[in-house]
Computed example of a mutant assay.
Amino acid sequence: MCIVFLHFNNDMGAKYKLIMAANRDEYLSRPTKSADIHPDFPNIICGIDMKSGVEGGTWLGVSKSGKFSALTNVMARSPDPSKLRKGKLVIDYLKDEVDPLDYLKSLQDKTHREFNMLAGKIDSCGKICLGYYSNWDGKSPMLLTDGTNVVAGTALNGNWRKIKHGRKTFDDIIGKSASMNVGDLTNCLLESLLSDTTSLYPDELLEEQCYGTFSDTVLEKYCSVMISGITLCGTRSQTIVLIDENNQIHFTEMSLNGYDAADRTAWSKSSYSFTAMITEPNSS
């Protein structure tokens, strides 16, 4: 159950066009490679899932052409094994120059397991274009407007207590971001937002959506932005993506090596900065 905080601002002179901060929550034993240039698609930078059947997939990534995307699971009953896996959707979007909304619309007639997906780009005018689609809420793909959005294992900008709690912290950081350089902003998002283990338990809405899957002890840990203290699963990676006024993309990932998220020495860091090479998309 991942969580993605995202803010974009297309106003002239905005220091940061895009600020995205995300936690990936996953089984701690799931084989994963830290963020790197994708071995099959050198235009893409992302963490890489190495689980059998979805090898080479990812949950969040950027492309050198100015595209970005993130995917979250949906908290629900056990996934339907007859449905398509979703682990390569982000890669499929990033590897081609397809428009965000066109790509999301192409998923409507397919039967993937439940997901929420963000697909964005810097357009030819230097503006952020961002689409969103969830295949489980009955709504069509949409373009989002400037501002803040939070995507987690529920509806867009849902009412889980940890979403509201994290959004307040995120908005406070956004309010100060114009006076912060890339390094300071990245560190602030990692430390103050993504590493927040404040438990917002109990949360009736989250509990209802998990259909009795988790014990109260596990639910208490799940009710925080950063999930830690559970033996089998928790926050595995933390990613910051910043796009500045000059179309410089700054990508930072912290990846957990081991099972103790509270031990900051167990985390490794990967960072990339580059200027987006913006091209016109192929529209369907």
Rank of each mutant, 00 (worst) to 15 (best):
S237P: 01
T154R: 10
P31C: 12
I48W: 05
L232V: 01
D96W: 01
D99Y: 02
G212A: 01
E114P: 00
I37C: 03
W267Q: 10
K127H: 12
Y259E: 06
V225C: 13
T154H: 14
K17I: 01
I128A: 04
N23E: 11
T72E: 13
S195Q: 04
S29H: 09
C233K: 11
L189M: 06
M12T: 09
M20R: 03
N9W: 02
F170L: 12
S179V: 14
D25E: 11
Y27M: 14
N10C: 08
D102P: 10
R264W: 04
S52Y: 01
W160T: 06
T148H: 08
G66F: 10
V182T: 06
F115E: 09
S270Y: 13
G229R: 06
D203H: 05
P79W: 05
G56Q: 12
N149A: 12
L104H: 04
G166Q: 04
N181E: 08
G120N: 05
D216T: 15
W136N: 13
D137I: 00
G120Q: 05
K95L: 06
G87R: 08
I227S: 03
C223Q: 09
L185R: 04
G175V: 09
T252Y: 04
T231Y: 06
I128E: 11
R30A: 08
F115D: 06
I122L: 11
V74M: 05
K110I: 01
N9R: 05
K221D: 02
G153K: 02
F8G: 11
Y133C: 06
I174L: 08
A155K: 14
T235Q: 03
G87Y: 11
T145G: 14
S179Q: 14
R264P: 00
S140V: 04
S177M: 02
D109F: 01
T265N: 15
E114L: 07
S273N: 07
C46N: 11
N187C: 02
S255R: 03
A14I: 02
V62N: 06
M1N: 07
D196I: 00
V62Q: 09
E208C: 05
E55V: 06
K168D: 11
C125T: 07
K95I: 02
K67A: 07
V241L: 07
K221F: 00
T58H: 09
E253S: 09
T265H: 10
D260R: 02
V74S: 07
P141Y: 13
S124H: 14
E253M: 00
R167W: 13
L185G: 05
L144E: 14
N257H: 15
K121E: 14
T275G: 03
R24D: 10
H7K: 02
N10Q: 08
E245W: 00
